[in-house]
Design a protein around this nucleic acid. Structure first.
Lengths: 203, 203
DNA sequence: TTTATTTACTAAACACTGTTTAGTAAATTA
DNA sequence: TAATTTACTAAACAGTGTTTAGTAAATAAA
């Protein structure tokens, strides 16, 4: 049955057209300001058509966050490929900041946006999020085995580390760094990261 | 002229009724889901009336964030009243977490919510935000004078410290702590804070 | 090839949102 | 008592996410 296959292919093409258009509009305008009608207009279909491919706006956001997590995991994983644990830890931090600075839109919906996190629990996005977190915790463990951190709890430590980078990045993305007006934001962040790494090494 | 005074008093009462109703609805339902019409219904006036007291929804949010900053500054300031610098630093961190856990609604609009931060620049909310940040930076300086932190840059250090607590709190408020399901979230946060303090002392 | 069915799509509506405008009834002033 | 100012609202505008009912074309069955 070649027809069924062609139809399925066409369906997937439509899906990815909606998705890429939505992603593009989001990066330009922000998620909240991008409406289903905007997306529909851009792809030259009616708004109702989008609902034949995605259950609702949340499913669209969710699919995009999944894309973000794929990119995120890939980049973190690359940064974790070779070298001593502590060096990899430093590279991981740098890469985290880099990802957030280069993809503020993705970062926002992955980690900041208010969104229904229900269901979510058993899909690829969740899985990649867990895996990304796994990179950090196992790296913390490797550092411990290497003599760092005085055998502290790996989960607590990884939460602490993640909190720091997330906090710095969140301040920037949500525009709460105005009190440091005179300093360059990106320099401030990487400077703070350097101090943080120094602390980690001494712990 | 007693009439003009009475009218002004009535005006202020109306303003604060709108404000307290808005705050209440926000804490229950969240900011995004609270509409002007919801607030109007709750105070038993028409939606248009609210616009006679506040320019738009942003001004309402803004007035509430100002209230939050007042509370925030007061609490931080109290925690900074007596003791050695490093002890005050620890108390400050604890108080920060406490404020965020007890007032997630306020914290959200003060530090996380997407909101037009323009204008904002010269009002009480901004001022209190700067002052709160000032508490931290001068405390950092006191710690440096006390022999801690090896004379590092106070601004960079305070940004690093604030980033950490903000990151931890943001994860909780925006519901991104699911990967630590089995652990108590508040214990995780205060545990991470303990580790962080330990690091600070050794830096 | 003709008829039946399924598919892909859309116009229009529903119930919301923030905000503005024009108008009214009551309170105050002249 | 008449004029004016104040406090308020009904109704509308333009937007939102989403659903429903209906249509025209493509495919399958006769």
């Amino acid at each position: 049955m070649g027809i069924a296959e062609r139809k399925e292919r066409e369906r997937q093409e439509m899906r990815s057209m909606i998705l890429s258009t939505a992603a593009q509009l989001f990066i330009e305008e922000g998620f909240e300001k991008t409406s289903i009608r905007n997306i529909a207009e851009a792809i030259e279909y009616s708004p109702a058509t989008i609902y034949l491919y995605f259950k609702d706006k949340n499913e669209l956001f969710h699919a995009l966050s999944e894309e973000g997590f794929r990119k995120f995991f890939t980049e973190l994983n690359e940064a974790n490929q070779s070298g001593k644990p502590m060096d990899r830890m430093k590279r991981l931090g740098k890469q985290y900041l880099k990802f957030a600075i280069e993809n503020p839109g993705y970062y926002d919906l992955m980690f900041i946006m208010k969104a229904p996190m229900e269901s979510h629990h058993n899909d690829e996005g969740w899985d990649l999020g867990m895996k990304s977190h796994g990179i950090l915790t196992s790296l913390v463990k490797e550092c411990i085995d290497d003599g760092y951190f005085k055998s502290k709890d790996a989960k607590l430590l990884s939460f602490m580390i993640w909190s720091f980078v997330h906090g710095a990045v969140s301040f920037k993305i949500r525009d709460r760094m105005k009190m440091y007006e005179e300093l360059d934001q990106d320099e401030l962040m990487s400077g703070a990261l350097d101090y943080f790494n120094e602390m980690l090494e001494k712990l």
